[in-house]
Design a protein around this nucleic acid. Sequence first.
DNA 1: CGATTCTTTGAAAACAGTCAATCTGTGTGG
DNA 2: CCACACAGATTGACTGTTTTCAAAGAATCG
Lengths: 195, 195
Amino acid sequence: MTPLQGFKEYLLQKISLSDDDWSVIAAACTIRKLRKHQYLLQEGEYWKYHAFVAEGCLRRYTIDNNGIEHIIQFSPENWWAGDRKSLMENTATLYNIDAVEASTVILFRDEDFQQLCARLPVFNNLVNHILQRSLNASQERIQVVISMTAEEKYLNFITSFPQLNNRIPRHMLASFLGITPESLSRIKKKLHGRS
Amino acid sequence: MTPLQGFKEYLLQKISLSDDDWSVIAAACTIRKLRKHQYLLQEGEYWKYHAFVAEGCLRRYTIDNNGIEHIIQFSPENWWAGDRKSLMENTATLYNIDAVEASTVILFRDEDFQQLCARLPVFNNLVNHILQRSLNASQERIQVVISMTAEEKYLNFITSFPQLNNRIPRHMLASFLGITPESLSRIKKKLHGRS
DNA sequence: CGATTCTTTGAAAACAGTCAATCTGTGTGG
DNA sequence: CCACACAGATTGACTGTTTTCAAAGAATCG
């Protein structure tokens, strides 16, 4: 299945589209392949797109003064990525986004995306819906990180995102959970006995 | 200034509205006064509104198995409150929302709110804009809690939200930062010397 | 292979949490 | 108006968790 077909299926799962609607959308799509570790966005740049992850997995993170990465979010296939803040406010982004695995993203220039929203109300609704879902997910994550111990956060992750657990290097999982790789290693040892 | 006038000013700061537009909006408003500690929403209930905080300050929090409160968010005047997840998915809410101070909120029933969005595109845009801002704020908060020590989180809070610092009891600030009241007390002592 | 990066392990130190007691301020009822 | 009760805030001693630093094993990639 091509990335575009994947995106079409994703859309059809959520909303109903005529063939015409789809051609309008498809016309605005740009496909970009990313190799593992390749940047989609780097701190200081200006983000101008909306990005749908068709294949692979991206991460969004910051780097602190000590050079430590802090992963805000993973975006596996069928999720969206980007930095709406940079886009909305036309400011330099504070985040880095790169590919955890070789990935394929579908890019929309913001102008095209806004036109799609204006032209296809159903598309606009979907966008809002996704925004709300993102906000919900974000707030659940806040609750997790302010209320749980390292071990609880790990357990919560492997039950909430079992499919991601195997795809992501441990040090990135540690960074996502807000703990050190050493701590994560010890927690795993304690829980699973080995490996 | 009445709560409704406050809301009107808030809107006019962000979007332009004709008098007719405003009367349509005002017609959908319900005003609710909350005493300190009074609930707007309690875990297990179904949330059906959109709520604008005109005066005072609300908090949204969960209570864990040990009976400890974890504050996800404060909503002072000119912010929105509620639980979109419960609203969207028609599920029992996982959160509690109550008044930190005596407060006034403006409530919109969801049906009315949707009608406003459909009827006034400019209102719909504002809602999206707020949603995006909320998401940005949420993600900044995630970064703070996964990357900073207790002391850094406290310092970040008092510089980012100086106006809130004086209005909120210390134990609630501790809960918001994800630390214990005792730890917060010691951090303050260390930093400010006293009080 | 060989080099780099990732992961694990160990020991020590820093950090934050717990429990219990004391102190403070506020508000209420006698 | 005072005294008391109560919730919130602070302090101290202790415990437990997590980090740090250093090193040794895996795994991965060119």
